[in-house]
Amino acid sequence: MRSYQQLTARSELIDLYEDLSSRKNDNSMFLNAINFALLSLPTLTKMFIYRFGDVADPYYLAVHEPNICITPPISGHHQLTLDHLTDELFNTILPEIAPDTTRFFLDSDTKTPSMIRSSSFSIDYTTVFQRFYMNEEQRQQLRKMTITAPAGYYISDIDAGTEYDEIHDAWAYGKQMDRELTRQQLLHLPSSCIRAEDGSLVSWELSHHFMKMSNHFTYPSHRGKGLGVLTELLIAQRYVESGYRPFKGVSDANEGVIRGTKASPHWSDGEVYGWSVLRKKE
């Protein structure tokens, strides 16, 4: 009989963290999800961690409504186990923890979306991203950095109560996401920003609910001054100080940012991954 296990005990989560940390491939997203669960951050929804299939080489699933993350076994995908995972996910887990939510966002490798077979959910579309992460040496270097803003600007914090609308409206994916989620991200998760001398926001970056750096934006009139790089290093430094691993995804269509990140001494290349929109069928 196929089964799955929700990992709730602190010892189980720590063991899983150590196991994933020892693997050669980058597991920053799932490691941050585990750390998130261990810290029990006071966000609007709770982080749930599950294991499916062979205990020695399983699928791992993280759910932080409305976000889902699936990590395949080291040995590669197994269709029957993935079918079991998605069946339990769509018909048992999500109805129990998010009964009123009809749209979810899946982070996975690029192969998983094409393998999902479900009578209750459909995949609206999948966007491909290049993942970048900071290795141990890069994280240690970041710890030692002193980050300062150039003349005419200063480092600040975002006011979640009054500025989340401005930030949400500037986000390229804002139309696909709930405005309240942006506010919750700002209230509970790390962020960074740089302001002009008059106090206006000019550059910022937020955290996705799996502790992925996201919503990176600099107003066009302030670009070309290195503010985006500084904003990114600021939030990455906050990740490291809080025990998280800095990582980000860059759309494969954003070739300029990909080239710049590949040339940066602060980042290492990770795997290409997919971000999919899942919608409950009527």
Rank of each mutant, 00 (worst) to 15 (best):
Y4L: 08
Q6A: 04
Q6D: 02
A9E: 15
E12R: 09
I14T: 15
I14G: 08
I14S: 09
Y17S: 14
L20D: 10
L20H: 09
K24E: 15
S28W: 11
M29C: 05
F30K: 03
L31Y: 14
N35G: 14
N35E: 15
S40I: 10
T45I: 08
F48A: 13
Y60G: 09
L61Q: 13
H64S: 09
P66C: 08
P66T: 10
I70G: 09
I70Q: 03
I70A: 09
G76F: 10
H77N: 04
H77K: 00
Q79D: 13
T81F: 11
D83F: 12
T86D: 04
E96Y: 13
A98K: 08
T101L: 05
D109T: 10
T110W: 06
I116N: 01
I116G: 05
I116Q: 06
S120M: 04
F121G: 02
T126G: 06
V128E: 15
L142S: 05
R143M: 11
I147C: 07
Y154K: 03
I158W: 08
G161N: 13
Y164I: 00
E166P: 02
E166Q: 13
H168R: 09
A172G: 02
A172P: 03
K175T: 14
Q176H: 12
M177W: 12
R179N: 08
E180Q: 05
R183P: 00
R183G: 03
L186Y: 00
L187K: 06
H188N: 03
H188D: 03
P190G: 01
S192Y: 05
C193L: 02
E197C: 07
D198K: 04
G199A: 05
S200C: 03
F210I: 02
M213C: 07
M213W: 01
F217W: 01
P220E: 06
P220D: 06
S221C: 02
H222P: 00
R223Q: 13
R223C: 02
G224P: 09
K225L: 11
G226N: 03
L227G: 02
E232L: 10
L234G: 00
Q237Y: 00
S242D: 12
Y244K: 07
R245L: 15
R245Y: 14
P246R: 07
G249M: 06
A253I: 12
A253Q: 11
N254P: 03
N254L: 04
P265A: 10
D269V: 13
G274V: 12
S276T: 08
R279L: 13
K280C: 11
K281V: 10
K281Y: 04
K281R: 15
E282L: 15
E282K: 12
